[in-house]
Amino acid sequence: MGRVAEEVAGAPHEAPFMRHRGLLYAVAYRTLGSAKEAEDVVQETWLRWSRVDPATVADAEAFLVRVTVRLAIDELRSARVRREAYVGPWLPEPIRTRPDIADDVVLADSVSTALLLVLEALSPLERAVFVLREAFGYPYAEVAQLLGRGEPAVRQLAHRARKAVENRHRRYDSDPATRQQVTERFLAACSGGDITALIGVLAPDVTMVSDGGGFTGAPRKPVHGSDLVARAIVVLSRQQPVGSTSGVLPVNGGPGVVVRCDGETVLVMTLHLAGGLVQTIHVVSNPQKLTGIAG
Rank of each mutant, 00 (worst) to 15 (best):
Y86G: 08
V131R: 06
M1N: 03
T265Y: 05
A189V: 05
A121N: 13
V52L: 11
D40E: 15
P287A: 12
T45D: 06
L198N: 02
G256Y: 01
A26E: 14
G192Q: 08
V248G: 05
L290D: 08
K163W: 05
V284W: 09
V81T: 12
F186S: 00
R168W: 08
A197E: 14
V242E: 13
V81W: 07
M18S: 14
P152K: 10
L277M: 07
R231K: 14
A188V: 03
V41K: 12
V278C: 01
G2M: 14
D227Q: 10
A58M: 00
V283E: 13
A161P: 02
G292H: 06
A144P: 07
A188C: 00
L198T: 02
L267Y: 02
V67K: 10
L249R: 13
A144R: 08
T31G: 12
G212F: 09
R160I: 07
I293S: 02
E44D: 14
I195C: 10
T265I: 07
S244E: 00
V165D: 03
R21G: 08
G276Q: 04
V201I: 05
G150A: 05
P255H: 08
S244C: 00
H159W: 13
M18T: 13
L64M: 13
G217V: 09
V266Y: 10
Q239R: 14
S226P: 09
S110D: 03
P16W: 10
R96S: 11
F186A: 00
T68V: 08
M1R: 05
P204A: 02
L132K: 06
Y86A: 12
T31Y: 01
E166P: 01
L132H: 06
R96N: 08
G276W: 05
E166I: 11
A177Y: 07
A135T: 09
L119D: 02
V8K: 07
M269N: 15
V105M: 00
R83A: 13
R83I: 11
A35Y: 15
R185Q: 14
V42A: 05
P241F: 07
L76F: 06
T97V: 11
L277A: 09
G253C: 04
Q145D: 12
T68I: 09
W90C: 02
H224F: 11
A218K: 01
G254D: 09
T45Y: 07
S50T: 01
R30P: 12
R238Q: 15
E14F: 00
A102C: 06
D104A: 13
T45W: 06
V206P: 01
G256V: 05
L146A: 08
A158H: 08
L146F: 11
W46E: 04
